[in-house]
Amino acid sequence: MDWLFFGEISLAGLAMGGLYALIALGFVIIYKATRVINFAIGEIMMFAAYLFLAFAGGLEMSPWVALPLAVLGGSILGGVIEKVMIRPMLGESPISVVMVTIGVASILVGLVELIWGADPQLLPRFLPREPVFIGEMYLAPKIAYGFLIGAALLILYLLYFRFSRGGVALRATASDQAAAYSMGINVRRVFNLAWVFGSLAASLAGVLVAATGGLSPQFGAIGLSVLVVVIVGGLDSILGALIAGVFIGWLETVAGAYLGGEYRMPATFAVLAVILVIRPYGLFGTHEIERV
C-alpha cells in the first residue's frame, strides 16, 4: 500500500470534511433553533457561489470584496426564505415543512439555471497557488486554504454561540422555546437569525467548495452529503456535526480515490444506514422521550 498516497488522499478528505463540518454546523443551527430540516442548504450554497461568480467574474470585483458580498447575499437569502416560506408553516407537521424546503431547493435550481445557464462554470481563482506540503504530503492549495478559511469561521461561530448575547438566545430557544419566549427572548427573531447564520456558514462553504470543484446547477446535490453528516452526527449536536463532517468528508474522498467516484455516495450512505439502525438519533443526537 502506498502510504504517501493514502496520506495525501486522507488529508484532502479531512480538509473537505472541515468544509462539510462548517455546512453541517449551519444545518444544525437551523435545526436546533427551529426544528426544520433544511433540504435546501445545498442550493443556498450554490446560490452564494453563483453570486460570487457574478461579482468576481461578471462585475470583475476583487475576489476579497466579492466573497463577503456573496456570503452576505446567501445569508439574506436564508433570512428571506425563513420569513416568506418557513414562518407560515409554523406548527405544521415536519413532513410539510421539509417539503417546503425541497420546493425552495427546486425554485433555487431553476432560478440559477435561468440566470446563469445550465453549463458548468469555473470560479475565478482567488486563493494562493503555491503548493502546500505537510511533511512529504502534497495538498492542493485551494483545498488547504479553503479549509483554513472555513475553520476560521467555524471557530468564530463556536465562540459566538458560547459567549455572545445572540448565541445565548439561540441556545435558550433551542432548549426550550416556550421558556425562552417567556423570558423575553424574541423567538421569531431568533428563528430568523438562525436561518441567517446557518445560511452564512453554508454560503461561505459553498464558495470555497465551488472554488475547488467548479459550479453547476447540480451543485446543490452536495446537500445530500451534508444530510448524511448531520444524521450520522445527530441532528441537534454541534459536536456531532464537526466530528461526522470531518469523518464523512474523509470517507467520501478515500472511497472515491480507491473504489471510484461511483462509490462515494454508497459508501457514506452505508455508514448512514448502519448509524440509523444502531443509533437512530445519530452519534451525539438527543433521544427524545416519547409521551402518550
Binding site: 408553516m89 417546503v100 425554485i107 435550481v109
Partner: peptide, 22 residues
C-alpha cells in the same frame, strides 16, 4: 428557459400548496 421554468414552477407549486392549500 423551459427546463429552469419547470423547476421553478414545481418548487412554487409545492411551496404554494403547502402554505395556502395544505
Amino acid at each position: 428557459f423551459m427546463s429552469p421554468m419547470l423547476e421553478i414552477i414545481f418548487g412554487a407549486l409545492i411551496v404554494g400548496f403547502l402554505i395556502f392549500e395544505p
